[in-house]
Design a protein around this nucleic acid. Sequence first.
RNA 1: UCCCCGGUAGCUCAGUCGGUAGAGCGGGUGGCUGUUAACCACUUGGUCGCUGGUUCGAGUCCGGCCCGGGGAGCCA
Length: 430
Amino acid sequence: MANVYVEEIARYSGQTVTLRGWLYQKRSSGKLQFLQVRDGTGTIQCVVERSLVGEEFFALADRLTQESAIMVTGTVQEDKRSPLGFELHVTDLQLVHEALDYPISPKEHGTGFLMERRHLWLRSSRQHAILRVRHQLIRAIRDFFDSAGFTLLDAPIFTPAACEGTTTLFQTDYFGQPAFLTQSGQLYLEAGAFAFGKVYCFGPTFRAEKSKTRRHLTEFWMVEPEVAYLDLAGDMDLAEDFLESIVQNVIEHRGAELKFLERDLTLLERVRKPFPRISYQEALDLLQAKGKEISWGQDFGGDEETLISENFDRPVLIHRYPAQCKAFYMKNDPADPRLALCLDVLAPEGYGEVIGGGQREDDLETLEKKIADHGLPREAFEWYLDLRKYGSVPHAGFGLGLERTVAWICGLPHVRETIPFPRLLDRLKP
RNA sequence: UCCCCGGUAGCUCAGUCGGUAGAGCGGGUGGCUGUUAACCACUUGGUCGCUGGUUCGAGUCCGGCCCGGGGAGCCA
């Protein structure tokens, strides 16, 4: 008997096959029982008829509890009543393991309760859909850079010092020395860009900020490309191509999951270049026209980001923020040194900043001064300064936050469901 | 760190003016040959977050603490 998966069931129409999975839900109607069986690739309704399987198997099916592991053998039949299009008419049933008192019932639960049981919550169809979108997005990101000639260059996770100095880092004891968990692969990627031309890294990032909002995790995944001989204009082109490509890729390959999540796909289909590009000054004018009290030099918070993105039907690129808002490694605009050659991309619908990046400072003396001005320990940055001594060229890149992007694509109100095991300010378990 | 909201059955919640602790779901038992969060009947189920106070009497009012959720700052 062939062992098959639910996602390939259509190929076995009319044949007798065996599914190996778990009981998701059960309904009975006298002499009939309907078992919803999931196997990780999908869920199918298995029909147990007393006259077909006999008393023994029918009684077994009647006793089955939610999430018990079972092997079901039966005939695949096309059925218009099934959302999948097929049902399995059971001829044989085996209990592999009986699950007693599964804590997550098919009815409503709060996110706190479910998060405590995240290891089990992953089995539910909604989480399944979200995490399959996440997987596809990761594939799309890798495909984009791999097919554009980028080399994957992993940045270290243990680092000797802060990349940006402004945010709080997780400190660990590294054989008696302090070491920090990375908050960005950026500086290492600059070394990579001068070695390989076009590089990207894709890994976990850690921020010990005490942020309690729907947009923050303490551990999240970030993809960061970095390219030699690229200026801000080129960086904006890259960000635009990249974002269009990955969003359209996910729509194409995970449309069913997005529909299950009741995502309005027309909003995502509009993510086509060109994206609007406005300067910080223009964004500021826009905010002030809307009555927001904000003055030049202030960074935008969540409210401001939402107000700006409301004006556009697709992601909006904001460039040239005041240098004081940005990290030390950003290059200043030669046309107006008060400004940094940086870019942020705000997702529509109030999802906020999904990309941040810009052109890097490539002049040795200027960079030395910036490190000093930010009060950073020079010793930790000697290797970084070396990059400006030996063949320094203009270069640029950006970082995209994976979980915020998944939340936006799926239309979720909170990032915590976009990662299998979220790490939040007050949550380290499971 | 600050501000706001919450904690009552396994889960989601209601509980009026301070006066005997409630519903739906889940679990259990029975019924039903096409159910889609199935339905119907019966049934099970409580340290009202903890602690101190006010009161004849506190889930309800007051103080302190603990835990959870949302937001601010900061950021992706």
